[in-house]
Design a protein around this nucleic acid. Structure first.
Lengths: 120, 120
DNA sequence: CACGCTGTACGATTGGAGTCGTACAAGGTT
DNA sequence: AACCTTGTACGACTCCAATCGTACAGCGTG
């Protein structure tokens, strides 16, 4: 039913970092977090190009300082859009596809179909 | 096909106020405008309780100063969420259901199903 | 024409979010 | 242990958006 690839979570995976429960997801919070082209691009790339279990912050290859990326990933996690786990050095993330699809069906489709604005 | 009631526009209706064309609607702009509980409530009420052709600003019965409401309606219009026409004294608005459904299918369903946060 | 009504325009204030530098913590590697 | 790598924490700065008061414009009615 879900149009996006959901990868299995290893049994020995670390606990996710603090995040809102599915029932606590708020539409206005999710939308308020997806109004930024940078974050929209992050979520979109996670949806379209996911191959392994999940990806570290640097996998995106964004040309921004690390402290900026930390900020955006934290914002996405606290709104309930992504889940983060600590794997040794790296903090890997993935989109909470099932949760978002359950609460806001169709929303991720819009994000995946989003076209970034002209860089010019 | 559209799940929302679309009322016909009278032939003698005034021209709409300046607004983005359908093709120019931007997801990040629309989401960025719907991240506010007040505006989310406005659009939701327009979707659920629409009976006449369209409604004036005061129809909502919101307990806010007029200058605040003017601001929010303008923001919604400039993002392409609502269309506004000047009818003599009143400026009446309606949600651009067809346009939004064409560009971002399913988005209005999420807004209509939205539950306002606890006022407590 | 004078008044009332709807809504705009403008400006001031406020709070919050994005951006990023620097310093630091924690795990891995050799 | 020394070092590298990944990412956090904190703080400062800037900028934008929300809020709203006041003054005004436009239309309709008596």
């Amino acid at each position: 039913m879900t149009a996006f690839k959901v990868l299995p979570v290893p049994a020995d995976a670390p606990e996710p970092l603090p995040e809102p429960a599915v029932g606590d997801l708020r539409l206005e919070a999710v939308l308020g977090v997806l109004n930024d082209p940078l974050r929209l691009g992050i979520v979109r790339k996670f949806l379209l190009e996911r191959e392994e279990f999940d990806h570290s912050c640097g996998w995106l290859g964004l040309d921004r300082p690390k402290s900026s990326l930390t900020h955006h990933f934290k914002v996405l996690r606290e709104a309930g859009v992504i889940r983060q786990r600590q794997y040794g050095l790296e903090r890997r993330s993935h989109v909470r596809i099932d949760d978002l699809e359950a609460r806001f069906p169709g929303l991720l489709r819009l994000v995946a179909d989003w076209t970034p604005p002209e860089p010019a």
